[in-house]
Amino acid sequence: MGTAFPVLYPYDLVAGPAGATAAVHHKNVHGPAGATAAVHHKNVRPTDRRSLKPGRPHAFGGVATPWGLEVSGVWNRHEWANGERWCHYPVRITLNGVGPGTAPVAASFSVVLDPQVVSDVRIVSARLNGKAHDAGVRLLSATRTASLFEIRWTTRVKPRSGDRLDLGLEVRTRKPPGDLPTVKHPTVGLIGMGNHITQRQTGLNSMSRSDSQWA
């Protein structure tokens, strides 16, 4: 057993990759009725190079281009017990497209918070590359238990290389009466982006805060 550490963006792409090829020698000879055939010889100087890369089936959608997303954002701090206890929550989520290709599916994400501290979360604004944008944000689900409050959203934005999607959040907080037995650290992460082998490992598919003080 062990831990694998994949190469992360931006060092996960090879600059100017060379395709696998084989040096071959062949000579065409004429057969009956003008037909030609390739005759291969041993121990002769190669006259050609042939690509060993298999053709990509049309059913796969043509050439696959690597793509990636980075998650970042802005946090706010909720305090109680005269400022001696606190927990963080996101007020802005930023999704950055690192390319070089466009994300094959629309950006979707989840926000996980502590229901003892947060009662409700809404997306109230969206900006694409610094301009107001109708991102088509749609609520997928909201799950609430005694220890976890998870909200899942999707958009209709498929970030291209260099795109920046900023989503503003409005968060309603609770004021706990005192110490809490435990706290769920806030987490924002990508969801439902599919099992795409071309997705780049940016190392920033989620963000969290663990510097809370609840007891």
Rank of each mutant, 00 (worst) to 15 (best):
N96P: 02
E170W: 08
A18K: 12
V188D: 02
G194N: 01
G68W: 01
T155L: 05
G34E: 00
S125A: 14
R172E: 11
H88L: 13
V171M: 10
P104D: 11
G136Q: 06
E84V: 12
A126Y: 04
N76H: 07
S110L: 13
L165R: 00
G68R: 00
T102M: 09
S141A: 15
L140R: 15
T173K: 00
R172F: 04
T182S: 10
A103M: 11
R172W: 11
P186H: 06
L69N: 04
S208V: 10
K184P: 04
H185V: 07
V105D: 02
I151H: 09
A132C: 13
K175C: 11
A103E: 00
P66S: 01
L13Y: 10
T154K: 09
G2C: 06
R138L: 15
A15G: 02
V63A: 07
V111I: 15
W67S: 00
Q201L: 13
E150I: 12
P57D: 05
V7K: 07
R160V: 06
P181L: 08
W80P: 00
A15T: 09
K27D: 09
G192A: 14
G73K: 06
K131H: 12
L113M: 13
F149I: 10
P104G: 07
R92E: 07
R156V: 05
A20L: 12
V111A: 15
H40F: 10
A23G: 01
G101E: 03
Q199N: 03
P46A: 02
N129I: 09
D179V: 13
D12F: 09
T36E: 07
L139Y: 06
L139V: 14
T154N: 14
S125P: 00
P6I: 10
W67M: 01
I123K: 08
Q201R: 14
P10Q: 09
A107Y: 03
H133I: 00
D166R: 06
A132T: 14
V24K: 02
D114L: 05
K42Q: 08
M207V: 03
A132M: 08
L128I: 11
V121K: 00
P17A: 08
P54L: 15
K131G: 11
V137K: 08
V71Y: 01
P90C: 09
R172S: 15
E70A: 10
V105P: 01
K27A: 03
P186A: 03
L204C: 08
V29A: 04
G136P: 00
K131P: 02
P181F: 10
E150C: 11
V112T: 14
A23N: 02
Y9D: 01
F5I: 10
A106F: 04
E150F: 13
T143A: 15
P159W: 06
G62V: 11
H25V: 03
V105E: 00
T94L: 11
P115H: 03
W86A: 03
F109C: 05
G130V: 08
T36I: 05
V29I: 06
G99E: 07
A146Y: 14
L140Q: 14
P177S: 12
V137C: 04
Y89R: 00
S72T: 02
A126W: 00
L8V: 12
N205Y: 08
